[in-house]
Design a protein around this nucleic acid. Structure first.
Length: 142
DNA sequence: AGTGAGCGA
């Protein structure tokens, strides 16, 4: 009985497979479409995305480490809202673009708390929330 | 999940 049911299910899902090598009209070569959220390096900004962090690295240690190469205005290790544990990446904002550049040169590929970290320009943040009916925007707007 | 690439109240 059960075998019959399984066989029927397999038969229903099995056939018509392996003939789909026809010329699909979607042979669009990957041309350089400037996707806004591409996985490439973002354009220079004062804000850096830092990944590869140790789970024990805090925002304070992040700021300390990056302050060697410029004036750090803000540094944050991203943590889980409920567990409070680090997600292993964070953001560092420098006062100027040249400090940010020096920060990348000085910290990218370096060790921090035993882990090789990666520093790069952060992409622009979330799309602006529609504040039409709501007058409770976040407090921290960096 | 203290699992290892990633783009955040």
């Amino acid at each position: 009985m059960a075998l019959t049911l399984r066989a029927a299910a397999a038969a229903a899902a099995g056939p018509t497979r392996g003939l789909r090598r026809l010329f699909s009209t979607s042979f669009i070569p990957p041309m350089n479409s400037p996707a806004p959220q591409a996985r490439e390096k973002a354009e220079p900004s004062t804000n850096l995305f830092v990944s590869g962090l140790s789970k024990r690295t805090t925002s304070e240690k992040l700021q300390e480490a990056f302050s060697q190469f410029g004036e750090v205005v803000h540094a944050r290790v991203v943590t889980d809202r409920v567990s409070g544990y680090s997600k292993g990446f964070g953001f560092v904002r420098y006062a100027t673009l040249e400090d940010a550049g020096k920060g990348i040169e000085g910290m990218d590929g370096k060790f921090l708390d035993g882990w090789v970290i990666f520093a790069e320009y952060a992409r622009p943040r979330q799309p602006p929330p529609p504040l039409e009916n709501n007058m409770s925007p976040p407090y921290s707007r960096y």
